[in-house]
Design a protein around this nucleic acid. Sequence first.
DNA 1: TGAATTAACTTAACATGTTAAGTATACTGT
DNA 2: ACAGTATACTTAACATGTTAAGTTAATTCA
Lengths: 151, 151
Amino acid sequence: MGDIRENKQARLRDFEHSLPMGLLKAREAAMSKFRPMLRDHGLTEQQWRVIRALADYEEIDASELARRSFLLSPSLTRILQYLESRKLITRSSDAKDQRRSVLVLTTKGQKLFAEVAPDSAAIYDEIEAAFGMARMTLLYDLLEQFHETME
Amino acid sequence: MGDIRENKQARLRDFEHSLPMGLLKAREAAMSKFRPMLRDHGLTEQQWRVIRALADYEEIDASELARRSFLLSPSLTRILQYLESRKLITRSSDAKDQRRSVLVLTTKGQKLFAEVAPDSAAIYDEIEAAFGMARMTLLYDLLEQFHETME
DNA sequence: TGAATTAACTTAACATGTTAAGTATACTGT
DNA sequence: ACAGTATACTTAACATGTTAAGTTAATTCA
């Protein structure tokens, strides 16, 4: 029972150093690297998540898009309205199920994606280089394990 | 160069499995355990962060409170107005520096803290038991390292 | 087959996140 | 002393988070 270990456990009891706070701070640290770049492209991080998900699929319905971009449907509804107003996406209703909307990136949307993607990748590369691939994958694995444990 | 490792690296390139998304999902998984309890007590997670920080200090000014609760000042301003309207805190201005407000938990606020704290601790215990102390501290350490690397 | 239920959104209401601008007080150097 | 600057908030404006309720279309099953 070393003091070091006891101190670590004690710190995790201190809410400023709790796991939820650690997750929040780590994410904020990461996103602060991306936000200025996205801002220069006129996008929020959530709008970029949607565009990125749309770029991966020819067609995708709103439910699937919400899952993949990890947004709640009310948020997604608003974002899709905005992206449609900027003519970055088009919506149509699924012929086989009129409840579903099918979203597609317009040419303009694809163009924007092509512009932002390299900048995004460059920042990701920097982060990876600074933190190291080994710790990066270890951290990601732990996050996934944690997520699974919480289910 | 095992395939397993290459796959992991490839997955981290897939934004749905990127580190920022992993951080977001892990945090959401954790907070979803706390939110219903906080809701029963009539608090949001941010309001609870503020109350918790206030409970740790006799007196604290808004800047320090923002740092400790990890909130931006505009958010904190609104939250303090709300908590004051519920008579959970009082504000006064620092005699030595009129720019600063000094926040203090009222008796009602202390009472609420005393009610919520055990429920919060219980949930934290469950999470700790489920995920294990070893992985918990490892994950937290990695998060701190990541945070430091990003500075 | 048609009333009840479910699914896929959308709207509403309120709280917070984020950036920029505004206000009042303190400090700094001449 | 005082003009200039910095600090500590506060306000504003817009976007998203979160929960609840509403709407329309599909599905179920008596």
